[in-house]
Amino acid sequence: MNEIATAAHASLRAPAAPNDGWKMLLTKEVLRFWRVAGQTIAAPVLTAVLYLLIFGHVLEGRVQVYPGVGYVAFLAPGLVMMSVLQNAFANSASSMVQSKIMGNLVFLLLTPLSAWHWFVAYVGAAIARGLLVGLGVYLVTLWYAPPRLDALAWVLVFAVLGATLMGVLGLLAGLWADKFDQMAVFQNFIVMPMTFLAGVFYSINSLPGVWRTVSRFNPFFYMIDGFRHGFYGVSDVSPWLSLGVTGISVLLVSALVLHLLRTGYKLRN
């Protein structure tokens, strides 16, 4: 086992090898969720649509957040982005924890793949799943909210950055957790509350002063608010501020995860 641990540590610290191993790992991670698409893609789409039907039915015509934008139209982008974030996180986190529990992670550790290869493969697959689920939710919501895109560039930028950040956070959770119970703690007590309290169902401007201030410290709020700006051209804060907060968050968390991968954090035991 000492020899295996030494080889695993060396492989993660090694410079990127001139091979296509990362592509094979990325393909493996994409196929992992695609083979059970009913659970990983269709089910989250159905959940988001149920949110839209319930909240839209109750509040449509009674609440108007932005002038000229109905509540269902306001809610749809928030649900799309929420689905992107939650599923990107779930993909990388569950994959890493599952590999630990099944004991097949050692075979990956013995490959010449560098930390960057691991990072690109796991996060790339998380981005793919998040965007696929988000696209599915968007296509279904078109039936309830007429399509309107004020700035497609903002939509794409925040969708990709949001999926990237959550894919990296999922990888971080997967590295830290040794079993699904620990991963569930990360998801249920950090990801879910921060997502639901990020302005998916409401504008933070409707909150009392103290809670409005607290919401501005939630990075998930900036991803959702910037994404919604791409649809209607209005938002609670400047999209450039949202872009800055999201971009800095991606860089900081990515640097941390790459450091943990290079040092073999909780991978060599």
Results as ranks from 00 to 15, higher is better:
residue 34 W to V: 15
residue 257 V to A: 08
residue 190 I to M: 14
residue 175 L to D: 05
residue 220 F to D: 06
residue 235 S to N: 02
residue 18 P to G: 13
residue 22 W to Y: 11
residue 180 F to P: 01
residue 250 V to D: 10
residue 211 W to P: 00
residue 151 A to F: 13
residue 269 N to E: 13
residue 147 P to E: 10
residue 256 L to P: 10
residue 190 I to H: 09
residue 114 S to H: 11
residue 244 G to T: 09
residue 51 Y to H: 10
residue 107 F to V: 02
residue 149 L to I: 15
residue 94 S to Y: 11
residue 98 Q to F: 02
residue 157 V to G: 06
residue 72 V to P: 02
residue 55 F to V: 05
residue 24 M to H: 11
residue 151 A to M: 07
residue 128 A to I: 11
residue 209 G to N: 04
residue 11 S to W: 00
residue 77 P to Q: 13
residue 208 P to H: 01
residue 137 V to R: 02
residue 13 R to I: 00
residue 230 G to C: 13
residue 143 W to S: 06
residue 180 F to I: 04
residue 268 R to C: 05
residue 215 S to Y: 08
residue 46 L to I: 15
residue 91 N to I: 01
residue 260 L to T: 00
residue 236 D to R: 06
residue 20 D to R: 11
residue 83 S to H: 02
residue 45 V to M: 13
residue 256 L to G: 08
residue 190 I to S: 08
residue 82 M to H: 03
residue 180 F to R: 01
residue 19 N to T: 15
residue 41 I to W: 07
residue 9 H to M: 15
residue 158 F to D: 03
residue 186 F to C: 07
residue 2 N to S: 14
residue 265 Y to R: 14
residue 62 R to N: 10
residue 131 L to F: 05
residue 90 A to D: 13
residue 8 A to G: 06
residue 1 M to P: 15
residue 186 F to L: 11
residue 125 A to T: 09
residue 31 L to E: 09
residue 80 V to T: 09
residue 247 G to E: 07
residue 74 F to N: 09
residue 51 Y to C: 08
residue 106 V to R: 01
residue 8 A to M: 05
residue 165 L to W: 12
residue 105 L to H: 00
residue 72 V to F: 04
residue 75 L to D: 01
residue 83 S to C: 04
residue 72 V to S: 09
residue 228 R to F: 12
residue 187 Q to H: 15
residue 181 D to A: 13
residue 202 Y to V: 09
residue 59 L to Q: 04
residue 193 P to R: 07
residue 198 A to D: 03
residue 127 I to D: 01
residue 86 Q to E: 12
residue 150 D to E: 14
residue 262 R to L: 07
residue 169 L to K: 00
residue 152 L to M: 14
residue 264 G to H: 05
residue 230 G to T: 12
residue 135 L to Q: 05
residue 30 V to F: 13
residue 34 W to H: 09
residue 79 L to H: 12
residue 38 G to L: 06
residue 229 H to G: 04
residue 255 A to E: 05
residue 17 A to Q: 14
residue 187 Q to E: 15
residue 151 A to Y: 12
residue 211 W to C: 00
residue 219 P to N: 01
residue 33 F to E: 04
residue 87 N to V: 03
residue 77 P to H: 12
residue 118 W to K: 02
residue 120 V to T: 15
residue 252 L to A: 15
residue 258 L to C: 12
residue 111 T to W: 05
residue 158 F to G: 04
residue 74 F to A: 08
